[in-house]
Amino acid sequence: MPYAVSFQQVSRHFGTVRAVDAVDLEIEAGEFFAMLGPSGSGKTTCLRLIAGFEQPTSGHIEIFGETAEGVPPYRRNVNTVFQDYALFPHLNVADNVAYGLMIRGAGKAERTREAEAALEMVKLPGYGARKPGQLSGGQRQRVALARALVNKPKVLLLDEPLGALDLKLREQMQEELKVLQKALGITFVFVTHDQGEALSMADRIAVFNEGRIMQTGTPEEIYRRPRTRFVADFVGSSNVLSPQLTERLAGVAEWSSLRPEDIRLGDESGQDATVTGTSFLGSATRVTLDVSGEKINVLLPSGAPVPSQGESVRFSWDKNALHLMGAGA
């Protein structure tokens, strides 16, 4: 079985800007794949390269083993859910959903049947006659999803689809998308800048920065064993410790990361530190420590005693919680 999507040394340059720079990438068929990174990191350009809206400056792209460069978007069996949904304002919901079928020449009866089935799948049965302007943001997003899925694409691309939704709706949609993906077995490629979203939804994650992939792996791998300082910092806001500090704490002169929730306070055999600040987060309290000039965040579960500012404390961690990343990370 070929990869759903594979990039071989793919670059996309805009003038002197290297939006995507020599990227290698393999997405398995049937996978829920997330591209995670800050804005401008190249993740959206990669998505557009798969959709066919952009062409690589160099390199080779395959979709299910077929060459993609030079193939226009309308001939790719790939569909996109756009960030702003891009619903056609002049068509009602049913015609929006059936647009791809209409272009393909499907008959009226088939279009009506399929559109209604797709709307039911995204929990909007009976909304066919409305205009996009009469829907809420969440409903528009579901229509956009139905419009893409009705074509049964080989790969579904989602460009920050939950970005415009409020927190509650977003969590609900995350759950539904996961269920839908498993039920349909379609490869989902999902672009987001929200690490929580990527960690909770994806089977695998590629972390982007400055046009390159920093690390690819399962959420667990990315979270527990970041390979670079950028990944450690961007995914889950881990503490990144300098080689000097790591040498003092663990005896190895390498960059390392230490999760705030893996640190305990009050262990008499631990290291010395000074509390420089505390902030209450609801389910936990964040304590900021100064350890020989470097800042380390600690997450204390609610109920644990919170030290006051200026207090000297001792801290410790599980031996394998300190993750070494090499001298050049």
């Binding site: 083993g65 001939r75 069996n77 393909r104 020449g105 088939e110 049947r113 089935a117 797709a118 009705v150």
Partner: peptide, 16 residues
């Protein structure tokens, strides 16, 4: 969703 007769199975479709 029922399987539509016209749903293509290839990754790249022929042109119009």
């Amino acid at each position: 969703m029922s399987s539509a007769a016209s749903a293509p199975s290839a990754a790249m479709l022929p042109g119009r």
